[in-house]
């Protein structure tokens, strides 16, 4: 009980203190870290061996009917990119099989196209364990696409874990939105 009262008092004191203007703290010369690295993706980044993004756009094989990019055509199933999962599961539900088949076929027919499958999880639990769970979801879709004939060299499965949530709420709807794979083509 005393602890509870104390916490309330402390919280009040801290709140009262929160308006104190900040000043720059004393620096200790020999321990001041050097200037920070600014990690802008386009700037001074060591060239990674596997590049998820390149500047040149993917040129889709033009069809006589429509020269439009089928990946961007809202009427084309290839414009659908997200596969959702149940809690603690990497099982791909049947409803996503047409979508996955379409992307596998597209990759087979467009040997210059490369796709990354990005696995995501909801925010509950360890960040590193969630990264591994997101990888498992990405691998599940990658494996299915490979079985459907997509060349492995054109595919990479990576995980964002819980780090890039699409929905930021702390409710079941948001969590469900974040248990997801996204298919992203190189150049997008």
């Amino acid at each position: 009980m005393n602890k509870l009262i104390l916490s309330v008092i402390l919280a009040g004191l801290l709140a009262a203190c929160a308006s104190t203007p900040e000043q720059s703290p004393a620096k200790v010369e020999d321990r001041t870290p050097a200037a920070p690295i600014t990690a802008e993706p386009a700037k001074s980044e060591p060239a990674p061996k596997v590049t998820a993004i390149e500047r040149k756009p993917v040129v889709a094989t033009p069809t006589p009917a429509a020269a439009a990019n089928p990946l961007k055509d809202p009427g084309n199933i290839l414009s659908k990119r997200s596969i959702f999962f149940e809690y603690d599961s990497d099982a791909v539900k049947d409803e996503y099989k047409p979508l996955i088949t379409a992307h596998a076929t597209y990759l087979k027919q467009n040997s210059s196209a490369k796709a990354t499958i990005q696995g995501n999880t909801d925010e509950r639990g360890s960040r590193e364990y969630n990264l591994a769970l997101g990888q498992r979801r990405a691998d599940a879709v990658k494996q299915m696409m490979t079985l459907l004939g997509a060349p492995e060299a054109q595919l990479e499965a990576v995980s964002f874990g819980e780090e890039k949530p699409r929905a930021t709420g702390k409710d079941d709807t948001s969590y469900a939105e974040n248990r997801r794979d996204d298919i992203v083509y190189q150049g997008e």
């Binding site: 050097a34 690295i37 993706p41 980044e45 990674p48 590049t51 998820a52 890039k164």
Partner: peptide
């Protein structure tokens, strides 16, 4: 995640030199 995927780096606190 700055290259759109998780990559492990080591960064020196004194020189800011960074290695993959």
């Amino acid at each position: 995640f700055q290259t759109k995927k998780p990559v492990v780096y080591i960064q020196s606190l004194t020189t800011t030199q960074r290695t993959v």
